[in-house]
Design a protein around this nucleic acid. Structure first.
Lengths: 187, 187
DNA sequence: CCGCAATGTAACACCGGTGTCACATCCTGT
DNA sequence: ACAGGATGTGACACCGGTGTTACATTGCGG
């Protein structure tokens, strides 16, 4: 019955959202027409699914949050030494690509409460891992944990943009990132 | 004779440009009306001085470049150990504030050739200092110099935004930045 | 194969930013 | 006090993005 309809609608919807992620990452001022073109869809269709621009943005935000949540889960932060866990997290986040750009450029804003909610759900988040590392001495206590979290995100984005702008191979940029980060947060 | 006229015009012009720097740093999509308001000037006046938006943007770019150039000169990169020189550079750049945001957010684009030209003029730039440090062993050779430069800018901006978003005292954010950076690029 | 859902096309009004003007006002140096 | 430059005010046309609608077309499922 509605299986088909739901299937078709859901597919188009996903198509539009993921096109929006890419388009907005490339150009923060991308118009709905741009997004529609990227999704190989009429502008009218975009409006049919999302009505207002802000609705699309909201959907994009949710999509990005889902990606982050999944990546965080894959990283398995509670396994092994804290430094290794953070390195795994970086590798996962690095693969997020455009979503990472969106998050970092502030197009997508994630509220404090949502972060907390995600941490809850992801089997403990970034902040706990940092705290764990500082507790067992594998991560330096000379830096605030808040700063370390901020630093991780920033250096991660640095690596991503480094690979994108200069055309350095991605794995190379990632290695530089991991090395720098490990040195920066070591005791 | 034209001393007065020239003086008045130059003052207003500077006022508008510096207001534009602040306004654009706060909101990348700031309208000319916003800039005019920030400069306490009529929108018409802005047009009188710059005609098109792009002209204003160009003027802003020049202003930012000048600020960077001056900051770089003040840092005196050829004095003392490379690590200290880079720390001094960070301190100077950190004080750039909104200009730093503009530069980092890509609103202001500086072409490769202009960077080179500035380095020439600033008594040797960032890249030479990194190279010097790597040559004398005070900076690790495990990281590419290109990456270290990229990292420095990024971590600097991280500290700036860290102080701005969370309301951490600026000097505190700067200290965290300098410490992280020193550790990251040490041998 | 029929029918409905999904999509496309075209046109429209609306809004905000832009760029330009004419005219009024203010301020400053002489 | 006067002349001229600098600025403000209000108005205008223009453009691009937005949101809506009516109607045509396609295509998939029953």
């Amino acid at each position: 019955m509605t299986t088909t309809e739901s299937g078709a609608r859901a597919r188009t919807r996903r198509e539009i959202v993921s096109a929006a992620v890419v388009a907005l990452a490339q150009d923060p001022g991308a118009s709905l027409a741009d997004v529609a073109a990227a999704a190989q869809v009429s502008r009218t269709t975009v409006h049919r699914y999302f009505g207002e621009r802000s609705e699309l943005l909201a959907a994009v935000t949710v999509a990005v949050m889902d990606e982050i949540l999944a990546a965080t889960r894959r990283a398995g932060l509670d396994r092994g030494p804290a430094q290794d866990a953070l390195a795994r997290l970086c590798r996962e986040y690095f693969e997020l690509g455009p979503a990472l750009t969106l998050l970092f450029s502030g197009i997508v804003e994630i509220r404090e409460e949502d972060w907390a909610c995600m941490d809850e759900d992801a089997g403990r988040g970034l902040s706990d891992t940092v705290a764990r590392g500082q507790a067992d001495g594998s991560i330096g206590a000379d830096l605030t944990s808040a700063w370390i979290e901020h630093l991780l995100w920033t250096v991660l984005y640095a690596a991503w943009s480094f690979a994108r702008e200069r055309d350095v191979p991605r794995h190379e940029a990632l290695d530089l990132c991991l090395l720098s980060l490990r040195k920066a947060i070591s005791p």
